[in-house]
Simulated scan of single mutants.
Amino acid sequence: MRRERFHAFALEALGKGPDVRGAEPWDRGDHTVGLHVTFSTGAQVWISITTALAPGEKHESAEAPVHAEPPAEVPVPELYQDGSTTPEKVKHYLAAVMANSGCDEIALVYPYADDGHPGFGLQFHNGAKVFCLLVHSARPGQSPGAKYELQAAF
């Protein structure tokens, strides 16, 4: 799934998450395209999207989606503890919401290991990949500052 189509799909899928108030497009203006997700408490996270084409596919060629069995449904983990969340909880939560979307182009959705920047990835049946990195967060009522950073809890 190419970036433009994934972007539209992710906005719809994440917007249906049980603790999601809304999902909107995010374009930082520096070629960063992503998602701005607001949770039911008002906490927010901004996610950048990077994609890798299916093996052998070229940007100038038509996309060739492959439809097969979507990922098995997984339990959606708790997002909050004591009224706030963390990047660790968010990546697992969003990965579960995406896995449970029922999209038959998705082969696998996984949260990134705890070895760096939090986020989640998707692999499609045609071999294409999407990488979603959490790049900024804000507590309820807080507006994003000029510096993009993830808070330990928000």
Rank of each mutant, 00 (worst) to 15 (best):
P111M: 03
P55Y: 02
G121N: 03
H117Q: 15
H31M: 15
S48C: 12
I106K: 07
G119I: 02
K16G: 05
G34P: 03
Q142K: 10
Q123A: 14
V109G: 00
H31N: 11
Q142C: 03
T51Q: 12
A95I: 08
H36A: 13
T38Y: 03
P25Y: 06
G34V: 04
G116Y: 00
H136K: 07
G121P: 08
P71I: 10
A96E: 03
E57H: 08
G141D: 05
F39E: 01
L134N: 00
L35G: 04
A54L: 12
A72Y: 03
P71D: 01
M98W: 05
D114Q: 13
L35E: 00
R28M: 10
A95V: 07
F39T: 00
P71E: 05
G34D: 01
A95D: 02
R28H: 04
T32V: 10
A64L: 12
S48A: 12
Y93C: 02
R28G: 02
A146R: 08
H92G: 12
G116I: 10
Q81V: 11
H136W: 04
T41W: 01
A64H: 07
T51V: 14
E60G: 09
S61Q: 12
A68H: 10
P77V: 04
V109T: 10
D82H: 11
V74L: 15
G102T: 01
Q142F: 05
V74H: 09
P71L: 11
L14C: 05
V20F: 01
V90R: 00
A68F: 04
E57M: 15
P118W: 06
A23M: 04
K58F: 13
S48D: 11
S61W: 09
E24W: 14
H36T: 02
D19C: 14
G56E: 03
P71N: 10
N126T: 06
F39L: 09
A95C: 02
V90C: 02
E73Q: 15
H59W: 12
